[in-house]
Each structure stands twice: as C-alpha cells, then as structure tokens.
Amino acid sequence: MLDEAASFDEFVHQHQQALVRYAVLLSGARADAEDLVQEVLTRVYPRWAEVSGSAGSAYAYVRRAITNEYLSWRRRWSTRHIWPAGSELPEREHLDPLRDEHDERLWQLLRELPRQQRAAVVLRYYEDLDDTEIAGILGCRQTTVRAHVSRGLAALRSAIAMPERAWRNHE
C-alpha cells in the first residue's frame, strides 16, 4: 500500500497543474477546476493500483474522469450548493492560466459553448487529441466528435465575427 501511495503522490505532483489547467478550460473558473480535479483524484485514489497498472496511461484515465465529471458535475453542483448573495458580490472570475492572453473575448465565448462542444474543442485544440481519442473520452462516436468540434468552431467564428459593441450587448 505504501508503494501505491507513493506512486499516486508522484502522479499528482507531476500532473496536477496540467489537470487543473485542463479543468479550467472546461469549467471556466480556477476554483471550480480545482474542485473538479480534487473530486476525481479522491475517487481514483482507492483504485490507484488498478488505474496505474492498466494498459492505457493513468493520465489519460484521469483526464477522461475529469471530462466526465465536468459533463455531469454542473447539474449535481447546483443542487448541492447554495450560493449566498450578500451586498458585496465578487468580481467576475477570470481564467488564471490564461491571464496573459490578450483575447479575453475568445475565452468568454468558449465558456458559453454547450458542455459537449466545449469539451470536444478543448480536447482537440488544448490536449491535441484526435477524433478516436476524443470519442473514447466523451463516450460517443467519432462522427459525433466531429459534429461537436464543427459546431463549436462555427459558434466561435460567428461570435468572433460579431462587432465588439454587439458582443458586449450580448453579454
């Protein structure tokens, strides 16, 4: 058991930042991303020997688990948590890893995509996966992956083509 714990700790140490960055792109907020990753790692730990010993990589397994958790998490999260609204509401949250990017508008538009489209676009262009790998993660067919990516990109292109003033009013 000690070796498993050391192996798990080593995995978390090596991959936690990348997993959180990936989850930020999915969830749109660093705090939510950290919660997603923590939730998944907590569930994976008891089965770490099985996960790390499987034919596929442990990173791919955990990334898929984060994707699945993200796709189902929003429904459960909204029913489990009550958000207090006092007189002082927090500022709009920004994507921490992407703060250096100049096009905040693009990241806002990405956050507005439906979850499946967003996950497919992030997996394609952030994780650089092909249709087969994305289909395995999302649990759908390759044609569905291509449709999600195509629709997501079309929505982004359409919104980007919208003049800045119209986009601001759209928010």
Rank of each mutant, 00 (worst) to 15 (best):
L156G: 10
L129K: 04
V12F: 06
W48T: 04
D130H: 11
L113N: 05
I137S: 02
M1W: 12
L89I: 05
A135M: 08
R124I: 01
L95D: 09
L2N: 13
R124P: 01
W48S: 06
A120S: 05
A5N: 14
R47S: 15
A85T: 13
I82Y: 07
D100A: 10
D128A: 10
L98F: 15
S158I: 02
E127Q: 15
Q142G: 12
Y126R: 13
D131G: 06
Q17A: 14
R157Q: 14
N169R: 15
S87C: 05
L36D: 01
L95H: 11
A31S: 06
P97G: 08
D9T: 08
T42Q: 14
Q16P: 04
G139S: 05
G56F: 07
L95M: 15
R75E: 12
V37E: 04
V51H: 10
E164Y: 05
W83P: 00
G136P: 02
L36C: 02
S27R: 03
S27M: 06
Q142H: 08
A65R: 04
R99F: 09
R118T: 02
A119W: 03
Y125C: 01
T67K: 03
P97E: 07
L113S: 06
D9V: 05
H94M: 13
Q17H: 11
T144C: 04
H94P: 08
P97T: 06
L41R: 11
P114E: 13
A147N: 15
G56K: 13
H170C: 07
Q38R: 14
R74K: 09
D131I: 01
G56Q: 09
A18V: 08
E50K: 12
A58M: 04
E69T: 13
A5L: 15
L110H: 05
V24R: 00
E39G: 06
R111Y: 00
H15W: 08
A135W: 02
H81W: 04
V51W: 10
G139V: 09
L26I: 01
E127P: 08
W83C: 04
A49E: 15
R157M: 10
L138P: 09
Q16T: 08
S72I: 07
A6D: 14
Q38Y: 13
G152H: 00
E101T: 10
R151A: 14
D103F: 11
V24C: 05
S54H: 10
S87D: 14
R76N: 11
R92F: 07
R76H: 14
R63T: 14
A155N: 05
G136S: 03
S72W: 08
A23G: 01
E133C: 07
V122L: 00
H94V: 14
M1Y: 11
L129F: 03
W77N: 05
T79R: 15
D96F: 02
R63V: 13
L129T: 00
A119V: 04
N169P: 07
E39Q: 13
L26K: 00
W48Q: 10
V62C: 02
A60I: 07
L138N: 09
H170R: 14
T67L: 02
D35A: 01
D131Q: 06
S150N: 09
L36Y: 00
R80E: 06
L89V: 06
L123E: 04
L129S: 05
H102T: 04
R151H: 14
A23W: 01
S72G: 15
G152S: 02
R92E: 13
E34A: 01
L123Q: 07
A29C: 12
L138A: 09
L98D: 07
D3K: 14
T144R: 05
S7Y: 03
Q14V: 11
